[in-house]
């Protein structure tokens, strides 16, 4: 079993303690809420999208270190990217954390998101890492229903 510091990397602990882009977004034109009924984690993702570009993105919510840090790093990674980039990154992130295929493989373009590669050794925590991303996707698709990881 992998070392715990593989999961609780300093970057993750830092983003948990000081989440970036945290709060509401009054000028948002896309929003969605997500819950993980298993552990009670809640997240809301707000975006201002113009010409298919993520101009602004913020999140708010409560949850474990993995879910808060994941949401925080996600917002940092997506600002200024296109909606298409966001969807692609979601797929790659999901692949990285949910598919246990031996040694971690995270292409350089994953940037800080690669810090979450260790999550795949902890199947119970995959939903924590992906909650914000599922919520993001719902927001991009204009899905007003709260998403659930269950």
């Amino acid at each position: 079993m992998s070392d715990l510091t593989d999961l609780y990397q300093e970057l993750i602990l830092d983003h948990n303690r000081r989440p970036r882009n945290f709060g509401s977004l009054t000028e948002a034109n896309r929003s969605a809420r997500g819950v993980n009924p298993l552990c009670g984690d809640k997240v809301a993702v707000h975006l201002r999208v113009e010409d298919e570009e993520v101009k602004e993105i913020r999140f708010e919510g409560t949850g474990c270190a993995i879910s808060i840090a994941s949401a925080s790093v996600m917002t940092e990674s997506l600002k200024g990217r296109t909606c298409g980039d966001a969807r692609n990154l979601f797929e790659r992130f999901h692949q990285m954390v949910a598919v246990d295929d031996g040694p971690a493989s995270h292409p350089p373009e994953m940037g800080k998101l690669a810090a979450f590669a260790g999550v795949r050794h902890y199947p119970a925590r995959v939903k924590c890492a992906t909650l914000a991303w599922h919520t993001l996707r719902a927001a991009l698709e204009g899905d007003a229903q709260a998403v659930s990881t269950e």
């Binding site: 079993m1 552990c39 009670g40 474990c64 119970a124």
Partner: peptide, 28 residues
């Protein structure tokens, strides 16, 4: 520290505890 994180770290020590709302959200 969120209970879920505590639970994962304790698990690595062989300790099984319950973390979460214990199906008692109003109590939380």
């Amino acid at each position: 520290v969120h209970a879920h994180d505590v639970g994962t770290i304790l698990d690595q020590e062989g300790i099984a505890v319950r973390t979460g709302h214990h199906c008692a959200m109003p109590v939380m």
